[in-house]
């Protein structure tokens, strides 16, 4: 094997350079670490003073008053979409429940009175505590019936508060305003990329 050479560096010197950088070859006052410690304390003091002067550089987001801007693809609490008639778009095909890795979607299918629509969900429940917010259900849905919002403020006093039934999933956005989050992909599908496992 030929030695790897870096332009301008004589391979014979490399050892010396490496040795020169070990502790033993630094001057004694560097080796006390005191200059380095004082330098570090200078850095922290500079930050302290700058942050006392103004809050321009502080990373804190003062939460309830100020909220973080999330991406439009944020995967927050789900909602079920409606048809113009107000019925759910869902046809109870179980695709989302099948795709769900957390196994937290429970559907009971029923016959729809409209013969054009084959089935509809009599019950549609998502367990918000088991859900991992992966968005697979959104991707799986052939009817564009389930989507996600940018809602991350999910707190409750009881576990039952997180069992979201059909009525809740259809209507909760009427009560609280939340921006759209992760939505089904609507562009062209690149077969090539898909074969590599990407949409």
């Amino acid at each position: 094997m030929t030695p790897v050479t870096v332009k301008g560096v004589n391979p014979a010197d490399v050892k010396d350079v490496a040795r020169a950088q070990t502790d033993e070859n630094r001057p004694w006052w560097v080796r006390t670490y005191i200059p380095a410690i004082l330098g570090g304390m200078g850095v922290t003091m500079r930050h302290l003073i700058a942050n006392l002067r103004n809050r321009r550089n502080t990373a804190t987001i003062e939460y309830p008053e100020v909220k973080r801007e999330y991406s439009p693809r944020f995967r927050g609490r789900h909602y079920l979409k409606k048809r113009p008639s107000g019925d759910p778009r869902c046809v109870a095909c179980y695709m989302c429940a099948t795709a769900c890795p957390a196994d937290c979607i429970f559907i009971v299918a029923g016959e729809h009175p409209d013969p054009a629509i084959e089935k509809y969900p009599v019950e549609f429940v998502i367990d918000g505590l088991r859900c991992i917010y992966c968005g697979y259900c959104v991707d799986a849905c052939p009817e564009d019936a389930i989507a996600m919002t940018r809602d991350y403020e999910m707190a409750g006093y009881h576990r039952e508060d997180f069992i979201w039934d059909k009525d809740y999933l259809l209507n909760w956005r009427d009560r609280v305003e939340r921006e759209d989050g992760y939505q089904p992909y609507e562009g062209e599908i690149d077969k090539e990329r898909m074969s590599r496992g990407r949409l």
């Binding site: 930050h47 302290l48 942050n51 809050r55 502080t58 990373a59 804190t60 003062e62």
Partner: peptide, 10 residues
């Protein structure tokens, strides 16, 4: 508070 300001927090 000191720690917070040193670490760019509040």
């Amino acid at each position: 508070r000191g720690a917070a300001f040193i670490q760019d927090r509040i």
